[in-house]
């Protein structure tokens, strides 16, 4: 029998990082099943939260894991590039951002004894709300649930009243009307049946969170060279798969919301969008100041590619 790897995922298999991981794993087991067997451990089965994966993979506690990139910004702020508000305007641009940023990510993983194998995006975040976001006025005082410090700051800059609420508390807060809105992807909203409380979704491309799948370098290098080479190839296939799949997940999410009678706005109101975009500038300035030359180079690379 060959080597056995565990692949940790904090989230369940039906979400994007889990789909990508399972695509990767099935291809690996297909091609190298006799030399390497990878077991998907979703739903946080191994006890790790996403933020724990970096150290867990580095120390070899688990061989491989998929990690929300922005949770690594405590290690290196460069990872926060995928979290900059309104940097990418489409799924194609998000793929370009991944292609630009992943060599930078790869170097950081390398530095900490790990190998970056592939990435996957999650569908873009937009605003689920009671009333349509059809003007700058609609943002004023909007009690919106945000998910991290950058989104909180951006929404506050845009004139909203962002609230920090645990994800598990979102539904009760929506049901009592204490929340007017939340910033998350269409399928995120569908997962808590947000149509019970909210009737609008505006696709803002706030950001596309991305996930890195990384493996312990010692475990990787212990594999025969042809398997290592194969894993890198399958990693590349997985990236292609994930950025195609996410379009379907996005459309399916939007369709689910529409099926449940929500009003889905694919093109945001230009004035409201401009307001949010300028509110996000702070985050970009601050990110550039903490990441220095590397950050500036990454951003310049990306902007050159987008054209």
């Amino acid at each position: 029998a060959g080597t056995k790897w565990d692949f940790a995922d904090e989230y369940v298999a039906s979400l994007m990082p889990g789909r990508a991981a399972n695509f990767f794993i099935s291809r690996v087991n297909e091609r190298f099943g006799d030399q390497l067997e990878v077991v998907y451990q979703g739903g946080g089965a191994l006890g790790y939260k996403s933020a724990d994966h970096f150290d867990a993979v580095e120390t070899g506690a688990v061989q491989a894991a998929t990690t929300l990139v922005t949770q690594l910004n405590g290690i290196n702020p460069l990872f926060n590039v995928s979290n900059l508000p309104f940097l990418v305007k489409s799924i194609e641009e998000s793929r370009l951002l991944w292609d630009t940023a992943s060599p930078y990510y790869g170097d950081i993983f390398e530095e900490y004894g790990q190998v970056l194998l592939f990435g996957s995006p999650s569908p873009p975040a937009g605003i689920h709300s009671k009333n349509p976001i059809d003007s700058v006025e609609a943002l004023r005082g909007l009690r919106i649930r945000t998910f991290d410090s950058i989104s909180t700051r951006t929404m506050a800059n845009a004139g909203c009243a962002p609230l920090q609420i645990a994800w598990t508390d979102v539904v009760p807060q929506l049901s009592t009307g204490a929340l007017d809105a939340m910033l998350t992807s269409a399928d995120g909203g569908a997962s808590i049946s947000c149509w019970d409380y909210l009737s609008n979704f505006t696709l803002f491309f706030y950001s596309l969170a991305s996930y890195c799948a990384h493996v312990n370098r010692d475990a990787f290098e212990a594999l025969p060279p042809e398997v290592q080479e194969g894993l890198r190839e399958i990693g590349q296939e997985t990236v292609d798969f994930a950025w195609t799949e996410v379009i379907e997940v996005l459309n399916a999410g939007l369709a689910t919301l529409e099926e449940h009678g929500m009003n889905v706005q694919r093109e945001p109101n230009p004035a409201a969008f401009a307001q949010l975009q300028s509110a996000g500038n702070d985050a970009r300035t601050e990110w550039l100041s903490t990441t220095g030359d590397a950050g500036a180079a990454l951003l310049a690379d990306f902007e050159a590619k987008v054209g």
Partner: peptide, 16 residues
């Protein structure tokens, strides 16, 4: 040790 310590250090960090 790495598995156990990581879980101990992060499992109780939770709003709920």
């Amino acid at each position: 040790g790495s598995i156990t310590s990581t879980i101990f250090a992060s499992k109780m960090v939770s709003w709920e």
